[in-house]
Amino acid sequence: MLLNLTINGEQRSDNVDPRMLLVHYIRDIANLTGTHVGCETSICGACTVLINGSAVKSCTILAVQADGTKITTIEGMAEGDRLHPLQEGFWEEHGLQCGYCTPGMIMTAADLLARNSNPTEAEIREALEGNLCRCTGYQHIVKAIQFAAAKMRTSKAA
């Protein structure tokens, strides 16, 4: 089936098998391997991407169901060499160890910060409920998102 979509600002048109999952399309066809496959059962959140700005688990949607949408993956966050404030936050606040969950964490956080520029710690933790991390204990991830939120508010004010 023919699939037309925009992924990180790039328009694509590909012929895909109807049963292909979006996460496999992103990794194998669009060659954007920053999005990870974790549990494949919509639990862990490693495969989270934004579809029209909304965080979804790309292992639980067919690629062809994303026809006509705008998708953002972790590769779409930085502008050239300039890291997105969320990426910078994960760097500065030590928000990752093995890094497997990180792309999903960042995409989920991007959805949150687009809706709520000044989230409380409780709101951040609630937003991350669909993302599992087995290394950090989440504390540094929460700090990383607080870092990003503060930085994004400052740059918006400037």
């Binding site: 012929n15 895909v16 109807p18 049963r19 496999h24 194998d28 066809i29 494949e40 067919l62 062809v64």
Partner: peptide, 16 residues
């Protein structure tokens, strides 16, 4: 279509 994944089984997909 270099890669075929079998995570999902094959079926006829209809999209009304």
């Amino acid at each position: 279509m270099a890669v075929i994944r079998d995570v999902m089984p094959s079926f006829d997909l209809l999209q009304p």
